[in-house]
Design a protein around this nucleic acid. Structure first.
Lengths: 250, 250
DNA sequence: GGAATAGTGTCTGTCAGACAATATGAG
DNA sequence: CTCATATTGTCTGACAGACACTATTCC
């Protein structure tokens, strides 16, 4: 039996029935707080609970494309603004019983977006919104999405250390202070302005100057800040490390 | 319609037909060279090509359990020795067309194992073997497994930097030189013995002394080395960084 | 004895973090 | 003018990497 013949005889239904979905942990920063895109489910299971945007992967699309499509549908963004969104695979979640309907393996993705307009609820959701991640504790999350979100947040914090992806939370041009704000928001504690400034400029390819400055100083005074855009580095070297986290080591 | 009723009416076959497999990039060190567990396929598609060990995820097991099961089947290891094997999820690969039979999403895993006996070929494979990763170039790899292996190797190199997982390539007790050998093998270049020694001992929780030493010195002379076992750290702090890789940054 | 290895000591350049200083612009 | 902020400078301790040295053991 050669390959052609084998394929002709192949019966897909002979294998365990599994469905594959793509879910997206989409993060943005609004008013100095980290926000997460969630949809309120309109249908069982978990009707009324908040859940990650996502859905079944379509036959003709790869996983990343599926995640990007789901995110675009939920945010209502056009191609242009979607292009500034960073998207990467986070991990797959496939415990039996994580979905009561059937065996569903979810391929979770992580997205970093600049401040975006309020989302539009898709057909299968009652509502969609950017919610502050610090206030998720009292919300009922569907499936194992609380765990996926936790792992997404930790991945995001780690990624800021050794990649220039913090710039993806900002518009194309930004000041060093705005960039510092991203780090402070995602990491959850203040950074020393002077040291941060010097460090960012010393990492090759992190940011490049536009030559321009802001139109005005800060709301409460201060000189106009120079504007920068993202550089061409894919990795930060040396990395911008978070202060030691003794509790996470053991 | 409540949740119960909804679930009773739910029709799994209404969703796109996808199969989910787990594949394993299993690494070990033999004779100072990094080796990878591969099986030679006995059936189409890609009959005769080398492939990662793996298979369909079973209805009652989660993804990590499936990967562990596939690895145990292929290596013939018992529970005891499997317990010393590190296994983590690497990523999912689901491009349409990556498998000519049907839409298959593969959840790849990465495993670190101490030197293990030669594998036994499972039923669906003509042969199974630990092959040196440096000599994979001239072998035909099935599906997109070459890419998965590349990403597994890069993940392995990165993991040695900030986790103590290098110890998983060794037996329970090891010398600092053996540990250095793991780093040199995985990273592919020599390290300074003295500096490595001091660094390893200075990282809290990386290794702990057993109080014992080796029975004899090295084959070509030298004093007996102290023996260590893995410590309780989950992360290395400060990390053991690879020398700067200028080419990987941009 | 000769050679290789384990383990320790020392020095230097780099860098992170603390702190200080200066300059600019909002109110 | 007063204050907050942007940006640059200085200092100190930690650490990585280069190099050197001693002790131990194999052949």
């Amino acid at each position: 039996m050669d390959e052609q013949e084998f394929l002709a005889r192949y019966d897909p239904s002979a294998y365990p029935a599994v469905a594959v979905t793509v879910d997206v942990v989409a993060l943005t920063i609004r008013e100095g707080a980290l926000h997460l895109l969630l949809v309120q489910r309109g249908q069982p299971p978990y009707a009324g609970h908040w859940a990650l945007p996502g859905g079944f992967v379509q036959p003709d699309e790869d996983l990343a494309t599926g995640a990007r499509r789901e995110l675009a549908e939920e945010t209502g963004l056009g191609d242009e603004r979607m292009r500034r969104v960073h998207l990467e695979q986070l991990g797959s979640y496939g415990d039996p019983g994580r979905d009561p309907r059937m065996r569903i393996v979810s391929v979770a993705h992580l997205a970093f977006a600049p401040d975006l307009p309020d989302p539009v609820a898709a057909s299968d959701a009652a509502e969609a919104a950017w919610l502050p991640v610090d206030a998720l504790g009292n919300r009922q999350l569907a499936f194992d999405h609380a765990r996926i979100i936790d792992e997404g947040l930790e991945r995001a914090r780690a990624k800021l250390e050794y990649t220039p992806l913090a710039t993806r939370f900002l518009d194309a041009e930004f000041t060093i202070s705005e960039l510092r704000g991203v780090y402070e928001t995602v990491w959850g504690h203040p950074l020393h302005a002077g040291n941060f400034h010097r460090k960012v400029l010393s990492v090759p390819g992190f940011v490049e100057s536009t030559g321009a400055t802001t139109e005005r100083g800060g709301v409460r005074g201060g000189p106009r800040a120079k504007l920068y855009r993202a550089g061409d580095a894919r990795l930060l070297h040396p990395a911008l490390l978070r202060p030691a986290r003794e509790e996470e080591i053991r």
